[in-house]
Design a protein around this nucleic acid. Structure first.
Lengths: 133, 133
DNA sequence: CTTGACCTTCCAGTGCACTGGAAGGCTTAC
DNA sequence: GTAAGCCTTCCAGTGCACTGGAAGGTCAAG
């Protein structure tokens, strides 16, 4: 399987696959006689793993770590477990933040919708956003 | 008020305030005879506005736009209104994404917690993350 | 034999929001 | 007068995850 096909199958752009290899996230690909990268199903699996892990909120650096640990023959389970728990905490924090932002935004939006632009006073930057909450 | 004091009062590092000026987010500060930047309460208000707008999820670029529109004498209300509504949509999307990620992560974490690392098979990258959902 | 779709490397840029550090000037207190 | 702690500019780097483009090699179809 050439890089274009892998890109097609996985949905990850060829450029990005090369980039992943470059930063060591993926192992150097096998090469055909002509120098083209050649991939097997393992490569697809690895790429899918990267996608899953990314969807789970892990950074490429963290994914690299898991991959590296695995390739050393150690089971990354404990490591992954920690990573997962840490990310769950982070996600909860981020969720709380986002919800607060949403409330703030909604209150601002309600205020904005009730305003006639002509009423905007000249002496403040923007009465919608500046008013005290 | 010198930059350090403004930084102290606002909680925004002096470095960042200079950066904001550099990118045109804040207007060039008044200078004292010795070249030091000098700020008044308006500056503090602008900085607070930036903080609020940032907390509301606007990018510095968007905040610049609002500030620029205002400084042209036009009321940015309509613009801000649009911005707010667009950001509300974005936040809802991001919230949905995050919640999905959280569910995914929780399911992975439950799986990981139930696993003995010794059970990790050697032939997959990481059974926690790779398994089908 | 050419056209077009692939593939290669390499370098450089993007976007976002800073942040660090060097080299030097100013101010205040002792 | 000197030391600490401000301030200035300028350049450069950070982190994350790509993305673009140039210049060139390869392959299959017509």
């Amino acid at each position: 399987m050439k890089i274009g096909e892998l890109a097609e199958t996985s949905g990850v752009p060829a450029k990005t696959i090369r980039y992943y290899e470059e930063i060591g996230l993926l192992p150097p690909a096998e090469r055909e006689a002509n120098g083209y990268r050649s991939y097997d199903m393992d490569a697809l699996q690895r790429l899918r793993f990267v996608q899953h892990a990314q969807a789970a909120g892990l950074t490429l650096r963290e994914i690299s770590q898991v991959l590296a640990i695995r390739s050393e023959g150690r089971a990354p389970c404990v490591h992954v477990r920690d990573l997962l728990h840490r990310h769950l905490v982070q996600i909860d924090e981020r969720l709380a933040e986002l919800r607060a932002t949403k409330r703030e935004l909604q209150s601002l939006a309600r205020h904005a919708d009730a305003l006639d632009p002509a009423d905007c006073p000249e002496d403040v930057i923007c009465s919608i956003l500046v008013r005290e909450r």
